[in-house]
Amino acid sequence: MKEIERYAQFLKDESEADSTELQGGAMNSFPLTEQVLKVCQANSLWPLTFGLACCAIEMMAAGMARIDMARYGAEVFRPSARQCDLLIVSGTVTKKMAPALMTLYEQMPYPKWVIAMGNCAISGGPFKVEDNYNVIEGVDRLIPVDVYVPGCPPRPEALIEGILKLQEKIAGKRHPWPQRKMKDAVKVHPIP
């Protein structure tokens, strides 16, 4: 398929490019700056306003009052791909959507991360049948994926857990900033 060749070309280009330049440039050449930068990146992941299917409804719920992504600094949904760090692939990727999705990913500036949310984005989900003619079976055939959030659709809590996992992947620690532990669910963040 054309898109899979495009992904192979993208991976080849990326491996040939200067990796330090893409991951923050000269700021990575000092050990302490790198650490500080990683903590900052982990705590301000701006997602792209990009919903594909029913998982997008759960993504919106994750930004709303009960489960608030804003607590982790991840509520700034930027409409333009140039200004965001995180691509949440929330839903079924059809063959018609695939080129647009890849263009959006390629338009994002480095450093960038991807969360595949829901079974459809992970493996094709309920559409992975013999007669399937239009659904990409797993978005990781098109773009590199950092965190997989399973579920059909996953609950908003699962998306928050995915974001925490991504923070762990970026900064190397589960809570890069000393965060509140959810010891007492009543006292911590009651709904205003």
Binding site: N43, M64, A65, D68, A70, R71, Y72, G73, E75, W177, Q179, R180, H189, I191, P192
Partner: peptide, 13 residues
């Protein structure tokens, strides 16, 4: 914005 939408806004940092 968070207060108007009954959210908490940035809390952890």
């Amino acid at each position: 914005a968070a207060k108007i939408q009954r959210r908490w806004g940035p809390m952890e940092v």
